[in-house]
Design a protein around this nucleic acid. Structure first.
Lengths: 131, 131
DNA sequence: CTCATTATTAACTGATTGGTTAAATAAAGC
DNA sequence: GCTTTATTTAACCAATCAGTTAATAATGAG
């Protein structure tokens, strides 16, 4: 029933969950730019880009100044910092997972070496890549 | 016209852009759980939670096993790692910004000290925290 | 003042989202 | 085989989203 205003982090993540918007941010990381220039690489109308910019602005990811009829956009990294902070708590999880993989590989290698001591041939363990 | 399958990062960020889903992940960071238990803290129907889980699963953020009629969910941190990697390129931006703030504060402090040299009183500059 | 340029707003559309309730499925217990 | 428990699917709905085209606003140039 209430209009339900979303929290800042949700606003930010939602803004980031679109490849066009991320591309815009990537472009802006190189420096301030006008809307037209931002829109140029995309095959969509200017109003569409304008809407994306509004989403980014609402999330605080960009700010806009005004020079003549241009409204140059500027990247504001603060919300990204918040995403980073949210991620922090989970970071240890994939690191831990890597640790376990590493341990497993070490164990495997130990077993291999042991087996090879009987019939020594070429070593096949070279990379920890999964996929 | 084409169904337009979204890239993995967009899928992940979109899944994260919802407080309910983030809360589910937070709960799962404590360990595997059943759907009912996951749903318990929320005042929404079970099917609604089930849908949220499907979004998380589609993004690869959770996996599900099966024991009897239970389908315990488990957190899969891999996609979070990808978000972290995406963030990496921007991380220097807010750090840089902090650096600039620091430099500014140092400069301010220098000016203050200079001013204080005439009328020396207590030092008020202590922390670089913003908010 | 008029025109060209830059960008936004309005009005519309179809697709997706996030929720609902009711029905269906799956497995285990008796 | 029926019942209970756990969970998903189906069908529906209102709200939001992502795009469109057409109209509007703001500014500077001539």
């Amino acid at each position: 029933m209430s209009p339900e205003v979303p929290d800042r982090l949700s606003l930010t993540l939602n803004a980031l969950a679109d490849p066009t918007r991320r591309a815009i941010l990537a472009r802006l990381s190189l420096g301030e730019t006008s809307v037209n220039e931002l829109a140029e690489p995309f095959e969509m109308s200017l109003p569409a880009v304008s809407k994306h910019l509004k989403v980014l602005e609402r999330a605080g990811l960009i700010s806009r100044s005004r020079t003549a009829q241009w409204r140059p956009c500027k990247l504001e990294p603060e919300p990204l910092k918040e995403v980073d902070m949210w991620l922090r708590d989970y970071r240890k999880m994939w690191e831990q997972r890597l640790d376990r993989l590493e341990a497993y590989l070490k164990e495997l290698q130990a077993k291999e070496t042991q087996a090879q001591s009987a019939k020594p041939k070429d070593d096949n363990t070279k990379d920890g890549e999964i996929k």
